[in-house]
Every structure is written in C-alpha cells, then in structure tokens.
Design a protein around this nucleic acid. Sequence first.
DNA 1: GTGATTGTTGCACGAACGTATAACAACCTC
DNA 2: GAGGTTGTTATACGTTCGTGCAACAATCAC
Lengths: 191, 191
Amino acid sequence: MSKRAAPEARRAELIAATARVLAARGAAGASVRVIAAAAGVSPGLVTHHFGGVERLVEATYDHVAARVGDALEAAVAAAGESPRARLAAYCDASFAPPIADPALLATWIAFWSLAQGSAAMQASHVRHYAGYRARLEVLLGETGVEADRRRLLAVGLTALVDGLWLELCLSPGAFSAAEARAVVAGYLAGV
Amino acid sequence: MSKRAAPEARRAELIAATARVLAARGAAGASVRVIAAAAGVSPGLVTHHFGGVERLVEATYDHVAARVGDALEAAVAAAGESPRARLAAYCDASFAPPIADPALLATWIAFWSLAQGSAAMQASHVRHYAGYRARLEVLLGETGVEADRRRLLAVGLTALVDGLWLELCLSPGAFSAAEARAVVAGYLAGV
DNA sequence: GTGATTGTTGCACGAACGTATAACAACCTC
DNA sequence: GAGGTTGTTATACGTTCGTGCAACAATCAC
C-alpha cells in the first residue's frame, strides 16, 4: 500500500500516471485499474480524488496542454530578441522533442477521440487551440504583420504546423523534421 | 434473423455498419455487439466473416479511405481542364461535404487511435497518405511546378489541408470553410 | 429429392470494465 | 494519548467485452 499523501500531490501523481498510460496504450488502455497500477495505488483512489475516470482524463488534458505550451514558450525565450527568430522558434519547436514524439501524438489522439463524447473535453480543446492561435497572432504582430492579416495567417500557420507534426509522428518515414522546418520557413517567407 | 446473403455482400454490409458506428460512437463504441446490431445480424457473423473485430476495422479503413479518394477525384473531374483549377479543387474538396464532416473526423480519429497498436492499420495509413501526396505531386506538375520542388510542396499542402480540415471539424467556430479555402489559395499563390 | 456445404444464430465462458461501500490506517487537533 | 478527520485499500456487484461452439437453416450439386 502507498503512503498517505497530500491531496494535490496524489492528484498530480494520478495525472502523470494517466499521461503515461495514454502515451503507451492509447485511449483504450486508460482504465481505472491500469492507471491506478501505473501510479502504484489502488483503483478506488481515482474515484476518491476525481470522482471518475472521465474527470481524471480531463485534468490530464489540461496538464499536458500546459506542458506543451511551456515547451513552446521555452523555445521562444531561447530564440533571442529577433521577432522573426522568435516566430520561427515557436513553429519549429513542434518538430523537435519533447513535442515531436510519437508518445505525445498517441496522447493527443486519445484526447481527440475522448473529446467526441465529452463536452468538457471539447471545450478544453477549443480553449487550448484558441490560445495557441492568439499567441501566434502576437508573434506575427511583432514581426510587423498588419493587424487585419494576422488572424488568417495564424489559422494557416497553426494548421500547417499541426498537419506536419501529425504526419511526422504518424508516418515517420515520409519526411524529416528538417524538411518540416523548411516547409514552414517557405510559408513564413511568403508573409 | 437475417436472410442468407452472399459473402461479399455481407462483408460490405458489415463494413458499412462499422463505418456508421465509428462515426457515431468513436473507437470506444466499435464493439462486435454494437456493430452486429447496426448491421442487423448476430455478433458471431463478425468472427465468421472477418475472424475478429480488428480485421473488420482494417477493412473499414481501406473502404473509407477509398471513398474519400473518390470524392477528391470527383471534385477534380468537375473542375474542368485548367490545371490550377484542378489543383485548387482537389484541396478545397476537403472543406466541403462529404469530407468536411464531423462524423468523418470521428471515424478518422478512431482509425488513428487504433493504428497506435496495429501494424496493419499503420501500414494502411502510410500507404493512403503516400497516395494522397503522390496525386498532389501530379497535379502540381500539371500546373508547371518544377519536378524537384514538387515533393516538399506536396508535403506542405497535405499538412496544411489536413490541419485545416481537422480544426474545421474539431472547433467549428474558429474559422469558416471559406476562410480555409482562402488560406489554401494564399499558399498556392506563393507557388 | 437427397446429401453436402456453409451462412447464421444463440449461448456460454472467462476477462475486464466503472464504481459503490465498508473496513483500515495515518495524520491532525486538542 | 484520545478522538475525529480523511487518505487508502480490498471486496463486491452488475455490465460489457471478444470469441469459441453446437445447432439450425438456406442454398447448391447431383
């Protein structure tokens, strides 16, 4: 049996275990028993702390999305002060670890598939992607793009980067990360 | 009980039922019993004709992918003879029915999630997307794009269209189909 | 018609699922 | 240290899962 832990600490452990299970076994493997075993606790704890598996997966989505956002921000911060370099870094970060990772794709696909039947998951997705596009609009603005063109450019950039990321993880042999960066660079050159 | 049917006809019915179930309930709902009920037959028939659910889902993937390809080709055929118009039609078809359909997205996400653990599904995906890109390279060639630029352009176009399609179905309020077409037109203008 | 083939059903089986509940144990308060 | 609070476990219950199997029935060969 596991030692008694503070509620927030135990919740964090369960969220981390859920992320591991989703990455390793997909949505189909995210059962109460498997998650609890991955966290080294008894299945009843999931109900106790989250009131059900669904709520735990929602919390995991928010956590993973925040981590992805952190990785993107870290790339921007490391890119220096040139607005063009910061924008490129934000996009290119999707083609390098820890984001370009088949395990993260598996997690993400699991979220998408679970969002089909859950209004809460769907709302989380809409919020997350809106934030992603909003950040991109700011970076575009700093490079001097006029305000009325930013929105559609952000829509296109998000779609392009996401599509490349998806296929990079799903069919690793089709093209390389360097080629993905080159494609994005070509798109940004036309801005 | 269902009347006796020819094997190919029964197989086709089961595949169609699987597609309906995947669209309506996602990968989680694609159980032998639910699929058989949707087809109006007994659960044992799935084992009898396909040897297991996994094989049935694989066959459904191939069938749905072929239908999507048909829809894209129909759009090209309806676009006339101008190479530019044919290329644009091939891309824009992803933002109109029957492809821009949340039910099709649900089906596709189910395939992705099942591909995580099935080598056969993964191989089908790689084959399907390679065909998609190859068709795009031909259409690009017909518009006069030099041969050595076609491959990366096709990679980018596929990713852009896929990303837009995904987000169009997943967050319907974020942007419109017309805006998606405008984004693609902007990308093609830079070619 | 008769027999063989095979599509089809209904059931049974073991396993895994989510969750409710009661008992246990660790910690905090006083 | 005694008592209350609450994190934790173990068990139990009903449901659903995939599939193997024996029986039934429709079709075909002859």
